[in-house]
């Protein structure tokens, strides 16, 4: 009787302990995963390992590193370019081109998207032509732009603007098409005119998708600035790339590539930060975009 009782108690104890234990383990695992997942450092491990490995391989004589210079050389090249001021000249030239092209393309894309999105007639009249133009690889415009606009800034900015235009146009037009009719009716009930309907209902409703289309447009802008600068430029990060290829300076090419990556990321971040106050109202899982 007492034995049975104590066995029963022991079993009960085990049963009550076991889930606690499992619970505890799960909690530790979650905390661990949270700590590792939450810290961005985990994403840095792989590139740092690769870079350190390559550095050691070159330093130890296992590879000569002539075509693929080790990180120390790339860093040295960056420092040199920065010290002579070349880096900033090229960087600012490229940045100016991207921003000018982005501004033109984004404004044109937004206006055209608003027009075709809001008016059925405009959509029928314009959209097929725009879609046909979109099917042309944008780089194919380069010879024509150079003939029309010369080989200096205008043709480069035009190419970037074309690249930015299409994602913004498509994003805005699609977003207007998917606005909730029920919200438009609220505007109608309060007797908003066309202009007020556009500014007070349609534009705010398309804001989130507009920002996304601007971001993909900006990304394409950086893609096309390289293409533009390949075509003949005496300044710009793209010029650094071509120059590095022609003079056999891989460290300079990699330094330019890294500068592109950082510049692109910073511009994207600036765009996100600039538009975040406009989107504070959203009720979405990924509110941080």
């Amino acid at each position: 009787m007492t034995v049975q009782a104590s066995t029963a108690r022991a079993v009960a104890d085990m049963e009550s302990v076991a889930p606690q234990d499992a619970d505890g383990r799960a909690r530790v695992a979650r905390a661990l995963a949270g700590r590792i997942g939450g810290v961005w450092l985990v994403g840095v491990i792989l590139p740092v390992l690769l870079a350190a490995g390559w550095e050691l391989a070159v330093a130890g004589g296992f590879a000569n590193g002539r075509l693929m210079p080790p990180p120390s050389q790339i860093w040295g090249e960056l420092v040199r370019l920065a010290a002579t001021g070349e880096l900033w000249t090229h960087l600012l030239t490229t940045l100016w081109r991207v921003l000018a092209g982005f501004a033109i393309g984004a404004i044109a894309g937004t206006l055209a998207g608003l027009l075709t999105g809001a008016s059925g007639l405009a959509r029928q009249a314009l959209d097929p032509t725009i879609q046909a133009l979109r099917a042309i690889p944008s780089i194919a415009w380069v010879p024509l732009f150079i003939l029309w606009l010369g080989i200096f800034e205008a043709s480069k900015v035009a190419l970037i603007a074309v690249g930015v235009f299409f994602p913004v146009y498509l994003g805005v037009m699609g977003a207007i098409g998917s606005i909730d009719r029920k919200l438009v009716e609220v505007g109608r009930v309060f007797r908003l005119g066309r202009l007020q309907m556009a500014t007070r209902v349609l534009l705010p409703a398309v804001l989130p998708e507009w920002v996304i289309s601007l971001r993909s447009g900006l990304g394409l802008g950086f893609m096309f600035v390289v293409a533009a600068e390949f075509m003949g430029a005496s300044e710009g990060l793209g010029y650094l790339l071509v120059d590095g290829q022609q003079l056999g300076k891989p460290a300079q090419i990699l330094a330019a590539i890294i500068t592109f990556a950082i510049l692109g990321k910073l511009c994207d971040q600036a765009l996100v930060l600039a538009t975040r106050p406009l989107l504070a109202w959203r009720d979405t899982v990924r509110a941080r975009l």
Partner: peptide
């Protein structure tokens, strides 16, 4: 057409999500 002397409440609240509660009430 929508008349200034007639107000309507729909089946769903139909609040404009980008306006604060106060601005929604002030919408009309």
């Amino acid at each position: 057409a929508p008349h200034p002397a007639i107000g309507i409440v729909f089946q769903e609240p139909r609040l404009l999500p980008w306006l604060t509660v106060r601005d929604n009430v002030a919408f009309g």
